[in-house]
Amino acid sequence: SESTKPSLDSNMLFSLFQALHQLYYDPNIENKNLAQKWLMQAQVSPQAWHFSWLLLNLDKVPEIQYFGASALHIKISRYWNDIPANQYESLKSQLFSQITRFASGSKIVLTRLCVALASLALSMMPDAWPCAVADMVRMFQAEDSNVDGRARCLALLELLTVLPEEFQTSRLPQYRKGQVRSVLAQECGSVFPLLEQLLQQQDSPGFIKQKVLKCFSSWVQLEIPLMDCENLIQAAFTSLQDPDLFDTAVEAIVNAISQPDAQR
């Protein structure tokens, strides 16, 4: 996808690494501030399409990879109209493969990449990517011998958790927000059975159950009818017996019963 990637000269790349080094490692606060200002401009420049992928190389430190992932999120969430429609698919598959690569890597980078893909999905729904959530679930459930199954499961849960959160803060115009909200409310049919299964599995480790409850908590804030999440609310009540899950379970239950639908 060349047209969203203006050519990047070596001077720009050198300046980029220099500024990142100053931001993270220079003890001089003035230098840090100047570097931060320059980097914020670089993130919104046309060249960001190009350098963000280079910064995600696995030989880079997590701070630099994080900046690359953040630049992608900014470009997708704020400059969506700059992306030609014929490049949506390649952008989507590049993000999927980066998330798979980082599933066993840096947690902060993985989260930023998930947020970038969530933003892409919201912008493409419902016309350009009608079954986005079902596709995400299917992609991460497919066998990939290079990625540990548990890491893949956590990456999927992270992606599903940040999706409703990204929706709440997105800059979508009002009419699009209503449209996307109703698509997401239907798509919970792809999410809730998976969450139920993970909560009820005897061998699910605590940290997976924790992520499941957080994910559920995130989805119920989309005003999902209580009838649609009855089983998960019951599972959350059962989780109250586990001291490690107690706080997260309480939060999920409170979010579920304090949404407008629950008041009817």
Rank of each mutant, 00 (worst) to 15 (best):
L113K: 03
A235G: 02
E187G: 00
L20M: 03
Q201L: 12
F14E: 12
L222I: 09
A132K: 01
I224S: 03
A151C: 15
A132M: 07
L117W: 02
A134T: 13
K107I: 14
H21C: 06
F192H: 01
L226V: 13
W219L: 03
S1M: 13
L160C: 06
W49M: 04
F246G: 09
Q200H: 09
E223S: 12
Q41F: 09
M136Q: 11
F192L: 08
L194C: 06
L13H: 05
L20P: 00
W80G: 09
D135Q: 15
D247A: 15
A185G: 07
A262W: 04
S7G: 09
V250M: 08
C114N: 01
S182E: 14
P46L: 15
G178C: 13
Q200G: 10
S3H: 15
Q210T: 12
L154C: 11
L20D: 00
E165Q: 14
S218L: 10
A116H: 00
L194R: 03
S10M: 05
A103I: 07
S123P: 03
E89G: 14
S119T: 05
S15N: 15
Y66F: 13
V250D: 00
G206L: 14
W53K: 04
L156D: 00
T100Y: 03
D228K: 12
L23K: 06
K177D: 08
D82F: 07
N231C: 10
L245C: 06
S93V: 11
T238Y: 10
G105W: 00
F14I: 07
S70C: 10
N33V: 12
S104F: 06
A116I: 04
V254C: 14
S123T: 10
H73Y: 14
D127W: 07
E187P: 01
A262N: 08
L157F: 02
A42M: 14
Q98A: 15
